[in-house]
Amino acid sequence: MATPVLDKADATPEPGFADSPYITVTFRVRRFNPEVSAEATWQDFQLEIDPKERVLDGLHKIKWDLDGTLTFRRSCAHGICGSDAMRINGKNRLACKTLIKDINPEKPITIEPIKGLTVLKDLVVDMEPFFQAYRDVMPFLITKDTNEPTRERLQSAEDRERFDDTTKCILCAACTSSCPVFWNDGQYFGPAAIVNAHRFIFDSRDEAGEQRLEILNDRDGVWRCRTTFNCTDACPRGIEVTKAIAEVKRALITRRF
């Protein structure tokens, strides 16, 4: 009896091999290299790929086997680090959570950097303005008690549930870079910053909710939201972003009246 060997399965399937799971997919990638040209251009790559694989696997195939100059961010590759948000077929998604079979592989799959941020190279954008907005909402626990706590800060399950949805944010910028207000005016805080403010505003342990609400009451705060729901559609974590923004709006109004 022969020992099963894995070599065969890993080998490239022969053309016309009936049982092959591989299909030919065209990746149409938006390329930009400021060291070569000021113009961004589309470049097509054709690859044999299992449709059950992810877009990120396709990008890896390109980078590792076809064109090493292709530049993109990815770290964990499992949908939690938030590095590889990109515009796939015109929609912001995480490349590591998008399966090829789910985005119609018969047509070329377009891959662009996320919008509204400076493109540095290929799919890499300057995230600094995004993180600046994040910093501006003070995304950390603030208490008035200056003494070192002697025990953990307890919270009921209901109090934790209140902001559970917004704790899921991974700061991938898919929501902020899908927001038409943000595209035209980078001064707007953007959905991601508001989501992270929401996470602390509605945390019973935090005592700076008032301050954060004041920050978001600004000209470039929550009132610039046009409720287009692009952010909720884009969020790879399924956070109800627009709802969170609406809750901040409601908190601002009920605080006043």
Partner: peptide, 23 residues
């Protein structure tokens, strides 16, 4: 080559805080 920056990029100094409830 020069990169294309989005309009009105957020920096450390912006936006200026506009206290008040006008919005």
């Amino acid at each position: 080559a020069p990169v294309i920056e989005p309009p009105r990029k957020r920096t450390k100094k912006t936006p200026k805080s506009t206290r008040g409830n006008f919005e």
